[in-house]
């Protein structure tokens, strides 16, 4: 085969390989959606974060508006401090918004849901959400349920 044809085929091969890589990075993986660090950071304190992980979603009204950047424990108050990187397009969140930890579906992943408040001031970089609601831990719920059932039976018996 002529050298020219060989070179053309190799060029095609390399182009196909790079196109496949490009497809894997843009179409298959999450490289295209929100590349992490740009945006502003807000914090929220929770008594219990359940199964929340770094890179979990932050949603408002079901729409993804940020990602959990880091999770830490306050050594004094023993509260979990969750830092979230927010999409800079949504920089009009009221200052008295509240954060809760929800579960997607019955057994799905946990995410931070933000409910907008009514204040005029908006959240700025580094602000902390004052209102928060912890994750529902299934074991605690079942424990409470059994406990209340038990005490009800006892009351009925007396």
């Amino acid at each position: 085969m002529q050298t020219r044809m060989v070179e053309i085929w190799v060029g095609l091969f390399v182009a196909a390989g790079l196109a496949a890589l490009l497809m894997l990075s843009l179409q298959v993986s999450n490289l295209s959606s929100m590349s992490g660090d740009d945006g502003y950071t807000i914090k929220a304190r929770f008594d219990n974060i359940g199964g929340l992980k770094v890179r979990s979603a932050v949603k408002m009204g079901g729409v993804l508006i940020g990602r959990v950047a880091s999770i830490d424990l306050d050594p004094v108050t023993f509260e979990a401090v969750v830092s979230m990187t927010m999409d800079p397009r949504f920089n009009q969140l009221p200052q008295d918004s509240s954060a809760s930890i929800f579960t997607a579906g019955l057994l799905g992943e946990q995410y931070v849901g933000i409910e907008p408040g009514g204040a005029d001031e908006v959240l700025k970089d580094g602000d902390t959400l004052l209102l928060s609601q912890s994750a529902l831990v299934l074991e605690q719920l079942i424990g409470q349920f059994l406990f209340s059932q038990g005490s009800k039976d006892k009351n009925a018996g007396e």
């Binding site: 390989g17 496949a20 497809m23 894997l24 179409q27 298959v28």
Partner: peptide, 15 residues
């Protein structure tokens, strides 16, 4: 040079 390209093609075509 070929192996990473072939593996990428394999994955992309598989998807």
């Amino acid at each position: 040079l070929s192996m990473p390209l072939l593996a990428a093609v394999f994955s992309a075509v598989g998807v």
